[in-house]
Amino acid sequence: MLRARGLVKTYRAPAGPRIRVLDGVDVDVRRGDLVVIAGASGSGKSTLLNVLGLLEDTDAGEVWFDGERVSALGRSARSRARGRFVGFVFQSFLLLPSLTALDNVVLAARYVDRGGADPRRRGSGWPSAAPCSTTRRCSWPTSRPVTSTTPTLASSSGRCGGGRLAGVPSSSSRTARRPSHRQRRVSGSRMVGSKDTY
């Protein structure tokens, strides 16, 4: 389902030569796999997830989603592929403060048209088990404190996008948590970047 070959990524250093963060990485992930990438801070976990999730270009190497060579696509086609194949659960949530909790949940569906019911209706019909169980709280802007709901909302934003590959690009050094109940229901592969193993 996910294949990457010879991934190379370098970053410009403030001084001196460029830093080679990924140096010919090969990855194969099959449907149903749960892959955890572990390593020290600065070892390139987030860079790898960014590259595999098409959030960042590589200097060399190729990425295939379901046999489609997505790394060769143009910017817009890559955005469409990202919306079609990948769901992200950002460690820092990255909720948009100008949107309500519900709009954050269904944000990805606005860009990736997969047919079916209206995304907002689907989002508002989200099970009562979810912390966002009342209409009032769903309509709150996320800039208001709703602390207990935010982690789950973050994972659901990837879910509503319909991506079959869920990743947690981590830009901070927080320890990754065990995937939530909702994450485990995702039917595709999962990759988690963490300093610690489970």
Partner: peptide, 16 residues
């Protein structure tokens, strides 16, 4: 800028 990055991560194209 960050919002745009998130939206593009979720699949938004340049035209959208």
């Amino acid at each position: 800028l960050r919002d745009f990055g998130v939206k593009r991560a979720l699949g938004a194209t340049d035209a959208q």
